[in-house]
Write a protein that binds this DNA or RNA. Structure first.
Length: 479
DNA sequence: GCTCCTTTGAAGAGG
DNA sequence: CCTCTTCAAAGGAGC
């Protein structure tokens, strides 16, 4: 990460989330404690943002906005683009990238040419995924920093500050047999595939970009394609057939998604869980329990993901994938709310006897956020569960819904929107420091879980909670 | 076979 | 600028 202060070492990464676990008083305390931290993070984000904006291919951003309509002809376009990218980065690709071989730093020792050259003390353990894909596989294409035009202002500091020698790019070819100088002739993303999966030119995606973000249009068989040479098929199909078969370019994974990918197998192994919903709850808690440094690594990886994604698919927009999923949750909720009989406010819905199910604003006699957001009952149970290891949350709704500034007097950390760190989504003003209680006591968690179970109205979520709760024990014991 | 669930974060749309 | 919505992964569960 760019500015991981070597000093305190803390205060980096996501200073976000934890706010959701604090009540307002606590939040304010934390905010004060971390005012400095927030600035640092803001700076960090700023640098990241700037880097992304400045160093993407010259007109990438503009192109992305301006040419979405042209996306449809993207295979050829991308080939062209890749050439451009390759040319652009020819010089720096393996040289002085800010994060030379960054993702490799995330690899477990066995994958490192020299395990002592670890990015930081917070080496992320990597668990092999059941799909035969490395959990960080999606990062591999970005890994060589092909697309990191070695921003001069950026994070050379990362290694400097952490005092950890960076991987030299020379190490990289060893993994993927990529000729240090010849990458420009191959699709940079060839490195995506493990050796055994390296496909010849015939195995290339029609776009020339074998990238995990590209999936067949049909949806579900998203993963295995990489293992089965689907790209060959795709190539044939897409070339011979028309529009409908166009591959779907998926969103780049965000920090948490990357974390999930990596840790899922571990959680499954530890907890013998299979239900993803429960696993994700655990992962969510673990995510919050991560130190900022640890989170920062994922934010950085995610940033790289986005960067490369942007380079590879300059015309792609997240909007492109809208509507790909059948029916939106909200739509359904709103539909159900068109039912005139359905109560909309927490007060009406849950009654005074179940104030624990009220959203925060309702408890404070403010305007009901559930009502505000369309009235759909977010199934308090499910969201309550998400707060499993948190003190009684003022509002069980989705965090972002009640993360409004606690009071008019509340002033967020001095940072412009563009300078907010991975300080995640602007809609979630997690400003409190989660460090306060990184690892909630198991007893507390169990208790909370019990309470949640009692309060639960959604049997499905309840069962998930139970599952999660059972595993919780395991988790907390192993931590 | 499709959709939901569940998590966080990013991006886009709209007010 | 702020809020809201959608999607990204995952795989069992339910219809």
């Amino acid at each position: 990460m760019p500015q991981l202060s070597s000093g305190g070492g803390d205060d980096l990464g996501a200073n976000d989330e934890m706010i959701s676990f604090k009540d307002e008083g606590e939040q304010e305390e934390k905010i004060q404690e971390n005012a400095f931290t927030e600035r640092d993070l803001a700076d960090l984000k700023s640098s990241l943002v700037n880097e992304s904006e400045i160093h993407q291919s010259p007109s990438a951003a503009a192109v992305r906005r301006g040419q979405q309509g042209e996306q449809r002809g993207f295979p050829d376009k991308h080939r062209e683009h890749l050439e451009v990218v390759s040319k652009q980065q020819d010089g720096s690709m393996y040289k002085s990238a800010a994060y030379p071989g960054y993702p490799f730093l995330m690899l477990p020792d066995p994958y490192l040419p020299n395990s002592s050259v670890s990015p930081s003390s917070n080496k992320v353990s990597v668990v092999q995924q059941s799909h035969g894909m490395h959990p960080l596989t999606s990062l591999l294409p970005y890994s060589n920093d092909h697309f990191s035009p070695s921003p001069p202002h950026l994070p050379t500091d990362m290694s400097q500050k952490t005092g950890v020698p960076r991987h030299q790019s020379q190490d990289l070819p060893g993994y993927y047999s990529l000729p240090p100088g010849g990458v420009g002739q191959i699709s940079p993303s060839m490195s995506w595939f493990p050796h055994s999966l390296m496909l010849g030119p015939s195995g290339m995606h029609p776009t020339g970009i074998p990238h995990p973000a590209i999936v067949p249009h049909s949806g579900k068989q998203e993963h295995d394609q990489y293992d089965r040479g689907m790209y060959v098929k795709q190539q044939v199909e897409t070339k011979r057939e028309k529009e409908p078969k166009k591959p779907v370019i998926k969103k780049p994974l965000n920090a948490f998604m990357l974390y999930m990918k990596e840790m899922r197998a571990k959680v499954i192994a530890e907890c013998t869980l299979k239900e993803s919903a429960a696993i994700n709850q655990i992962l969510g808690r673990r995510w919050h329990a991560l130190t900022r440094e640890e989170q920062a690594k994922y934010y950085e990886l995610a940033r790289k993901e986005r960067q490369l994604h942007m380079q590879l698919y300059p015309t792609w927009s997240a909007r492109d994938n809208y509507g790909k999923k059948k029916r939106r949750k909200r739509e359904k909720q709103q539909d159900s709310n068109t039912d005139p009989g359905s109560p909309k406010k927490c007060r009406a819905r849950f009654g005074l006897n179940q104030q624990t199910d009220w959203c925060g604003p309702c408890r404070r006699k403010k305007k009901c956020i559930r009502y505000l957001q369309g009235g759909g009952c977010p199934s308090p149970s499910s969201s309550d569960i998400s707060a499993i290891d948190s003190p009684p949350s003022p509002c069980p709704g989705r965090l972002r819904l009640y993360q409004h500034p606690p009071s008019p007097g509340y002033s967020p950390p001095p940072s412009s929107p563009s300078t907010r760190l991975p300080l995640p989504s602007h809609t979630r003003s997690h400003s409190a420091d989660k460090r306060g209680a990184p690892h909630p006591p198991a007893a507390k968690l169990a208790h909370t879980l019990l309470e949640l179970s009692k309060q639960t109205h959604c049997s499905r979520a309840l069962s998930a909670a139970k599952v999660a709760g059972l595993s919780l024990k395991v988790l907390t014991e192993t931590q």
